[in-house]
Design a protein around this nucleic acid. Structure first.
Lengths: 181, 181
DNA sequence: GACACTATCTATAAGCC
DNA sequence: TGGCTTATAGATAGTGT
């Protein structure tokens, strides 16, 4: 927008990229701030300039950890809800066509699903025990007073968090598809 | 934008808020996507509709954890850089006025700072040992196969991560202000 | 409640300093 | 680097279906 129409692809020119970043970052953050005020929502924006300088944008009420935690908690629920909604819609469509539908019919045989679940559970056990091992390493740490240690611990925690999150989502999804909640 | 100018404050009307959220969310995400393509940057956006439905927007390259980790790593550096830059600017200004300036003069007596550092270190030890205790609890967990356990572990990890992050930042800041890197 | 329309407002590309 | 200007592209509030 402006004097000429711009093709949306990576700016070849480095300094032009910088200038555009500054301008558009301001615009994007303004839009986000308006949205958050108008609609009274939680929002978290994290971005890095082409040179790596970070910018954070948050609502008044919350920290970024809170917003992320909220997202982590809601996502599986949302997914479950959407799954159910689409299945219900499908069911209604079929019923309108005169068919009587058991929603389980859409989910394949339970034998296969339970087998999947068992495999998943085994995988889960293995990965959690690996995490357990990593955590037990820490029980031998007596004094921590430099940033290298803290960084390493931070890294380790993040990695574990990642694993747990993945497992939780997989497990929840599996529960949904098996038991329909 | 639109037929009338809108005052940027919380929409009183609930359904209007919903409609505006949908429209503006699309606009904001489009802007963000353009920015990320044009400038080839890392970006993470997390928002919740007025009804609590979450939306996540990310670049192709990275996961949200990676973007957050990147932010966590860079922020203290950025802060240090900015501290140094403003001190250097101050120093230059004074030098222009004919004064010879030791940058340490801006940082108070080292006695006080070292006392702060000792206190901080003690606090750090205490909080880390509390975290240690929490982590050691896990070493007794043999089997984890339901979402309640995973949620609890997730929660615990997040909390620990929060603590570590805070301590790391405090410690880094303290190092900077004491030793000027 | 999701989608068109469109008059109007806003963002911004390019240019200049 | 950062700000200001202006012509133009883009976003959207109110409205109707």
């Amino acid at each position: 927008m402006g004097r000429a129409k711009l093709k949306i692809k990576k700016f070849a020119n480095t300094s032009g990229r910088q200038v555009t970043y500054s301008k558009r970052r301001a615009g994007t953050l303004k839009k986000a701030k308006e949205l958050l005020i108008l609609c009274d929502i939680d929002i978290a924006i994290l971005m890095f300039s082409p040179t790596g300088k970070p910018t954070l944008c948050l609502g008044e009420r919350s920290t970024i950890e809170e917003v992320i935690a909220k997202f982590s908690q809601l996502t599986p629920q949302e997914r479950a809800k959407r799954t159910l909604e689409s299945l219900e819609a499908l069911k209604k469509t079929f019923q309108k066509l005169g068919h009587d539908v058991n929603i389980q019919d859409f989910l394949g045989t339970s034998t296969q699903t339970i087998e999947d679940m068992t495999n998943q559970s085994t995988l889960l056990q293995a990965q959690l025990s690996e995490m357990h091992k990593r955590l037990s390493y820490w029980t031998h740490v007596d004094k921590i007073n430099n940033t290298e240690h803290l960084n390493a611990m931070d890294e380790s925690l993040r990695s574990s968090l990642n694993h747990i999150q993945t497992h939780k989502e997989n497990f929840t999804e599996l529960c949904i598809s098996t038991l329909m909640l």
